[in-house]
Simulated assay, not measured.
Amino acid sequence: MNKLKYDDATAITMAPGVSRRVLSHTPGLMLVEVTFASSAVVPVHNHPHQQISYIKSGRFSFTSNGESEEAGPGDSLAFASDVEHGVTCLEDGVVIDCFTPAREDFL
C-alpha cells in the first residue's frame, strides 16, 4: 500500500490561478486534486491518458471536441485517450482528476 498524507503532497502551479496536487498514484492509476481561481483556464490539450474529472466544488465550463458543457459540484466527466479538452473556471473550485495510466509528467 502506498500512502501519501495531504500535507506532504506538493502543490504545483499549472497555469495562472490553477494548481495541482498529486494525491496518490501507482504506475497504472493517478489521483490529482486541481484547485482553480475564478476565470482560470486550462487551455485545450490532449494526452494519451484516460481521464475522469469529478467536481468537488465550484462551477466550470469544460470543452471537448468543440462542444462545451457546464459542470458543478457532484458532476463528473470522462475523457478518452487523445481527445482534446480544456476547462474554464466560472466560480472558484476544486476538481479531482483520475488518470490511467499515471501521468509521469506530473511526478
Score class of each variant (00 low, 15 high):
F60R: 02
E69Y: 09
C89G: 07
A78L: 13
D82M: 08
E69N: 11
C89K: 03
G93W: 09
E84G: 07
E84P: 13
G74H: 09
S76L: 11
A71L: 14
V95H: 03
L77M: 14
E70N: 13
R59S: 10
S64I: 12
L90N: 01
G86C: 10
D97P: 04
E69S: 08
V87G: 03
T63S: 11
E91Q: 13
V95D: 00
G72K: 08
S61E: 15
G93A: 05
G93H: 06
V83T: 10
T88I: 07
C89T: 02
P73G: 11
R59W: 02
T63D: 11
V95A: 04
E69A: 12
G66N: 09
S64H: 15
V87H: 03
E91W: 04
A78R: 15
S61Y: 00
F60I: 11
G86F: 10
V83Y: 10
G66Y: 05
S61D: 05
V83Q: 14
H85N: 08
D92S: 05
G66P: 11
S81C: 09
L90F: 01
H85E: 04
G93C: 01
N65E: 14
G72Q: 15
N65T: 07
V95Q: 10
L77A: 05
D92E: 06
S61R: 11
H85I: 07
V83D: 12
R59M: 10
S68I: 05
N65D: 03
F79I: 06
D92G: 06
P73Y: 01
N65H: 04
S61L: 10
S68P: 00
S64M: 15
T88N: 00
C89W: 00
E91I: 02
T88R: 09
G66I: 15
S81Y: 10
D75M: 08
A78N: 14
R59A: 02
